[in-house]
Amino acid sequence: MTSGTSSVHRATTHRPDPGLVALGEVRTGLLQHSAAIPHQLAERILQLVPGERVRLSQRPIAHALSPELMAGVDCRLAAASGTHIDGTGTVLTRASITGGTVVQASARAVVGPARADHRLPWSHYMARPGMIETRGKIEVDDLAAGFIGQPTSSSALDLSALSRRMMDVIQGSSQLDHAPRMRTKRTRLRWTARTVTAEQPHGLVEFAIEDDVLRTLQLRTKIDRIAMVASLCENLALHDWLLSTLLELIEREQRGAPHAPQAVLRLRPAIDSLLHLWMPAAHIDESLHPVWEALERRAGFTRQWEQLRDRIRDQVTLSAVTLMSVVTEGSASE
């Protein structure tokens, strides 16, 4: 019978399908604002779809997640082998703000073969949000490799453009003052997820730093939990960005006068706004924690972070002491 007004939680149970591959890109950057923004403002900025809620959590760290937007695509997909594969469907994009400070914008889609060999009416694709159906057979490994190696300028499915546009929308918001406390790079994480198979153990990960802004991650997991996998990738991208940003700031600080006590004061904004954001695997479904742990073992994110953090703290303490003594000496000699 019909029920009254109650709520349901998402509980879809598809069988993991080895013929599917999930593709995504996450962009991470510093929010273009002079201070960390409060939750309510983050909510207003992320209100991208009329009538849909921004999801807010306070613990263990303030996190605001926009509703998901859908975009239609009908195009070629990049394949490593160069095979011509066409697909039609929808891509999901969303944005988030963590700690009132870091913005992330992401785009993702699950790609799988269609039953029909021609394009179906658009209503068919709209009923399958975040799914792209290809005409003809696909090799998931070929598609995953093609996506990972896709050049910026290509005529294939462009998740990069979708995530960039989302990023630009948030960063261009009229609610922001566009006077950030420091200059930082935006990073991109391109990721793929293929289904776990008998030969390929669960959670197998390959993470790579391709250049100073591009990272890639290749996972094996259950595709039916793709929204959770996307969250995992966003979380990973966030931590990679924190680490890269801190390294960048240290490099810049040392570029001038490496030992001057004032120099280190330039690291204050970093200390104030970034250090407390380190919160690995926050808001990540428990079932995916092993993936994060595997990454930690190989890439050693937390180890490096802690080392950097300690170094900055030491320098700040040191320079505070030096400055103090400069001040006292100065006043004594007057």
């Binding site: 950057g29 273009q32 630009d168 960063q171 261009g172 566009h178 930082t184």
Partner: peptide
């Protein structure tokens, strides 16, 4: 162009 300037300004002095 606005987006370009915003993203460049966010990264470069």
């Amino acid at each position: 162009c606005i987006q370009l300037f915003l993203s460049m300004e966010a990264e470069f002095e």
